[in-house]
């Protein structure tokens, strides 16, 4: 992979950057993994930094935008190893606080961490961090797929980091990874969402929440980004999706 970094938003004081430093084997295909960084006035918020395997490359890429000592928060959408596997490394190299669902706080010692003073545990309804008139909002996305799961909305860039919601089984691209034909892209979404997402009711709850937000881009942890009209098409699709417990007969 060559194109491992894409600046999604930059107004001079606020940047939203996407990195693509990892991929996972998924049956006969690869699931590309995205990491994100928000830099606001030289303070960083790192989003789903991934596993230990990519720590060196990602930390080097991050320092081109913000010094590691200026990373204030590291947001972990949920507890999976491709999200949180490098907690110990980031705890050693940054003074950042880790933001994660309160459900996973008790697992921190398994990640090599006993300093709960560096954990900001999110209540089920989420939270907001304000900077001036703008804010970063942690939007509940429980059981989609993790039972303690959050999306992150940046009000200034109008980018919604959706975690595993919107993930697609697509090979890692060299070019900018965004959906250019939603109808064609649906087949990449279906398998993953039907099996990993909790239920249609849960999908609708999340969609009704994020529909109230002014969104330019939906940026998932895996696969391609949804821009403008494609973001809206994705939300409509998700609202109608039967998945998880709706398909119980296929599981038992």
């Amino acid at each position: 992979m060559q194109n491992q970094e894409k600046i999604l938003f930059d107004n001079g004081t606020h940047k939203f950057i996407m990195f693509s430093f990892d991929d996972e084997t998924h049956e006969d295909s690869y699931l590309s993994v995205n990491q994100y960084l928000i830099v606001q006035n030289n303070m960083g918020v790192l989003i789903d930094p991934g596993s230990e395997a990519i720590f060196d490359e990602l930390s080097e890429a991050v320092t081109k935008h913000v010094a590691l000592e200026n990373i204030k928060y590291i947001f972990l959408s949920h507890q999976d190893p491709d999200v949180s596997g490098s907690i110990t490394q980031w705890s050693v190299t940054t003074p950042a606080k880790f933001i994660i669902s309160s459900l996973w706080v008790r697992f921190m010692s398994h990640y090599g961490f006993l300093d709960m003073g560096r954990i900001m545990s999110l209540p089920d309804h989420g939270a907001k961090i304000h900077f001036g008139e703008n804010y970063i909002q942690f939007v509940p996305a429980h059981f989609l797929h993790s039972p303690g799961n959050f999306s992150l909305y940046d009000s200034l860039s109008k980018i919604l980091f959706s975690g595993d919601i919107g993930a697609a089984i697509v090979p890692a691209h060299d070019e900018y990874k965004h959906v250019d034909n939603f109808e064609k892209h649906k087949k990449n979404l279906e398998g993953f969402h039907k099996r990993y997402m909790g239920s249609n009711k849960l999908c609708r709850a999340w969609v009704s929440h994020v529909e109230k937000l002014d969104i330019n881009i939906i940026a998932p942890q895996h696969g391609l980004l949804f821009e403008g009209g494609d973001a809206q098409l994705f939300l409509e699709w998700l609202k109608e999706l039967e998945c998880g417990s709706d398909l119980l007969s296929e599981l038992y």
């Binding site: 720590f55 490394q89 705890s91 050693v92 090599g112 006993l114």
Partner: peptide, 20 residues
């Protein structure tokens, strides 16, 4: 730095196990 970070991270895990 990479080697030192790995060592400190691993040592943290060792100390957690020892502490428990």
């Amino acid at each position: 730095k990479s080697a030192l970070v790995k060592y400190i991270a691993k040592r943290q895990m060792e100390l957690i196990r020892e502490f428990k």
